[in-house]
Amino acid sequence: MAAVSVAAEWQLLYNRYYRKPEIYSMQWNVDLTRNRVACAPFGGPIAVIRDDAKIVQLFAESALRKLNIYNSAGLLLSSTRWDRPGGRLVGMAWTDDQILVCVVQDGTVHRFNIRGELLQQGNVSLGKECFEQNVVECVFWGNGMVCITEGFQLFCIPDFKNPNSCKLADPILEELPLCITVIEPQYTMSGNVEVLIGVNDYVLVVDEESVQQVGVGVGPLQKMAVTQNGKMLASFTHDVSLTSRTDSLVWNAQCATILG
């Protein structure tokens, strides 16, 4: 029986077996369904804040929201009252330098250190046009981010170390895309971020200067994820199938082309 139990812990992934042993139990008492959570890579800090996009029962807790930062074992490192202006919190992530980036509805980016302290000159604006349209979704990578607005426009901060925003080419959308992901600048031939947008049954590849339609017939895609080395794309389709595109994902000098 012991041998069967041990064998059951291993899962086949492609041609390798993996298992996930529990090293320790988390020390916190956090309902993840009621909160936004951002985990830093490589076992770094975890930021948690109550999700204001959800209707939740407050029980005995205060109506004032707090930004709590824990270590990877669930021990509280800092707790800060969230009183940032700019509307609803849309996106939150850690940069490679373990700076917590929080994007609010009007396109303001608030940056905090691991102690929950707002950095000096920590606020960055995505610009007047973004402010007027409101941000609805964000996608982050190591030290940058892309957001899409209610006006279906894309804005980007390529590097938070030099946080200047730019507007990408107009994808000419009539409604919000089904899904969105990015190919990081270090993995593109142009050296600029490329945004993959799932629209109808195809994908748009958008950069600062151009929009290209590729992969007609591969969708509708509900979710896409690019591997960390930028070479493979996983897609989750409307008919509930998960596909990993490896040999059918071809990179040329300008963009990623998804072949049918």
Score class of each variant (00 low, 15 high):
Leu75His: 14
Leu75Trp: 09
Leu89Glu: 01
Gln57Cys: 09
Asn71Gln: 12
Leu76Thr: 04
Ser79Ile: 08
Glu61Asn: 07
Ala73Lys: 12
Leu67Gly: 02
Ala93Tyr: 01
Ser72Tyr: 09
Thr80Arg: 10
Arg88Thr: 15
Ala73Gly: 09
Asn71Lys: 10
Ala63Val: 15
Ser78Met: 05
Thr80Phe: 05
Ala93Glu: 00
Glu61Arg: 05
Leu58Met: 13
Thr95Tyr: 06
Val90Met: 04
Gly86Gln: 12
Asp83Trp: 01
Pro85Glu: 10
Ser79Asp: 11
Asn71Cys: 11
Lys66Arg: 12
Ile99Val: 13
Trp82Leu: 11
Val101Gly: 00
Gly74Leu: 04
Gln57Tyr: 07
Ser62Arg: 02
Pro85Leu: 09
Trp82Arg: 01
Thr95Ser: 14
Asp83Gln: 08
Gln57Ser: 12
Ala73Asp: 06
Val56His: 01
Gln57Val: 14
Val90Tyr: 00
Arg88Cys: 12
Gln57Glu: 10
Val90Gly: 00
Leu76Gln: 07
Tyr70Met: 10
Leu67Val: 02
Ser72Glu: 09
Phe59Thr: 15
Trp82His: 07
Pro85His: 09
Thr95Ile: 09
Trp94Leu: 07
Ser79Gly: 10
Ile99Ser: 04
Trp94Phe: 10
Ser79Tyr: 05
Ala73Met: 11
Ala63Lys: 13
Asn68Gly: 04
Phe59Glu: 15
Arg88Tyr: 11
Leu64Asp: 13
Tyr70Ile: 08
Phe59Lys: 14
Trp94Tyr: 12
Leu89Gln: 01
Val56Phe: 02
Asn68Ser: 11
Ile99Lys: 01
Arg84Thr: 03
Arg88Ser: 14
Leu77Arg: 04
Asp96Tyr: 08
Leu67Asn: 02
Ile99Asp: 03
Arg88Asn: 15
Asp96Met: 13
Gln57Trp: 06
Asp96Val: 13
Arg81Phe: 07
Gly86Pro: 11
Val56Tyr: 03
Gly86Thr: 12
Asn68Trp: 01
Gln98Trp: 06
Glu61Lys: 06
Ile69Gln: 01
Gly91His: 04
Asn68Cys: 15
Asp96Gln: 11
Ser72His: 06
Ala63Glu: 14
Leu67Asp: 01
Ser78Lys: 08
Thr95Arg: 03
Arg88Pro: 09
Ser79Cys: 09
Gly91Arg: 05
Val101Asp: 00
Tyr70Phe: 15
Lys66Asn: 14
Arg65Gly: 06
Tyr70Glu: 04
